[in-house]
Simulated assay, not measured.
Amino acid sequence: MRKYIANIAPLNAEKIGTSAHGTAEFTIDGDTMHVKIEMFDTPANTEHWQHFHGFTDGKDAIVATMEQDTNHDGYIDLPETTPVSGTTMVPFDKAPQDMDIPNDTYPVADANGYYRYEKDVPMDILREDFKRDFGTDDIALDKRVVYVHGVPASMELPDTVKGDLLGYDTHVTLPIAGGKIEMIEND
């Protein structure tokens, strides 16, 4: 059994008015990965896309900081995370193994900005789809970072804040928290 954890810290907190934080835990036992993500103080009543990001060449991903704010608008948007965090890889939605990123099956925070997500993921399907998309079946969790995204559609964002190259809405993709995944147990 292998266990991993990411302590998820706020991103863009001063701009969005809330300091989203929490933990993501991953337990791989046999051919199942149990994922548990618990978040606090996220924008309330909002769906939060959440994924792990990384590099396809095995490079170690890190969470973006204000140093990555290349256009100096005071926000770290999704494209600005790419140089240090890599690409969006696996979603934590209703079926992570399907690797279907744009959908509406991500968790929705309650009125207090809290949500808890738990899912058992079949590793054989995940590895197969991961290899299809990234050329390797090595999930390499300890080289990945977790991002939580999403602010209410009513929040005003400057035109300088971008979604991504595929044109997803900036309200959906704006990172609100992130954490580096670290191995804590390997039996």
Results as ranks from 00 to 15, higher is better:
residue 89 M to E: 15
residue 6 A to T: 01
residue 50 Q to L: 11
residue 3 K to N: 10
residue 154 S to M: 09
residue 93 D to Y: 06
residue 71 N to Y: 09
residue 133 D to G: 11
residue 117 Y to D: 12
residue 148 V to I: 15
residue 96 P to N: 09
residue 125 I to V: 15
residue 6 A to S: 06
residue 90 V to F: 07
residue 40 F to W: 14
residue 126 L to C: 07
residue 155 M to Y: 07
residue 181 I to V: 10
residue 165 L to K: 05
residue 144 R to N: 08
residue 71 N to S: 06
residue 86 G to Q: 02
residue 110 D to A: 12
residue 72 H to I: 03
residue 87 T to F: 15
residue 45 N to H: 11
residue 69 D to W: 07
residue 51 H to I: 06
residue 120 D to H: 03
residue 14 E to T: 04
residue 9 A to P: 00
residue 16 I to V: 10
residue 136 T to F: 10
residue 114 Y to D: 14
residue 97 Q to L: 07
residue 27 T to W: 04
residue 161 V to K: 02
residue 5 I to R: 11
residue 22 G to L: 09
residue 39 M to I: 15
residue 155 M to F: 06
residue 144 R to V: 03
residue 29 D to N: 09
residue 173 T to Y: 00
residue 75 Y to N: 02
residue 162 K to R: 08
residue 146 V to L: 12
residue 116 R to P: 01
residue 29 D to P: 00
residue 132 R to C: 06
residue 60 D to K: 09
residue 162 K to Q: 14
residue 68 Q to D: 12
residue 119 K to Q: 15
residue 137 D to Y: 01
residue 75 Y to G: 05
residue 124 D to I: 03
residue 153 A to V: 04
residue 89 M to L: 12
residue 144 R to I: 04
residue 25 E to W: 00
residue 68 Q to H: 03
residue 12 N to G: 03
residue 13 A to I: 03
residue 144 R to A: 10
residue 96 P to D: 13
residue 18 T to Y: 13
residue 91 P to A: 13
residue 159 D to K: 09
residue 2 R to V: 02
residue 159 D to W: 02
residue 171 H to I: 02
residue 127 R to E: 12
residue 33 M to S: 03
residue 179 G to K: 08
residue 153 A to C: 00
residue 119 K to F: 12
residue 131 K to I: 05
residue 66 M to L: 10
residue 30 G to W: 08
residue 169 D to Q: 02
residue 99 M to L: 15
residue 51 H to F: 15
residue 142 D to R: 00
residue 178 G to H: 12
residue 36 K to Y: 05
residue 121 V to K: 00
residue 48 H to G: 08
residue 67 E to S: 08
residue 59 K to Y: 05
residue 146 V to Y: 01
residue 71 N to K: 08
residue 74 G to C: 06
residue 95 A to F: 14
residue 158 P to S: 10
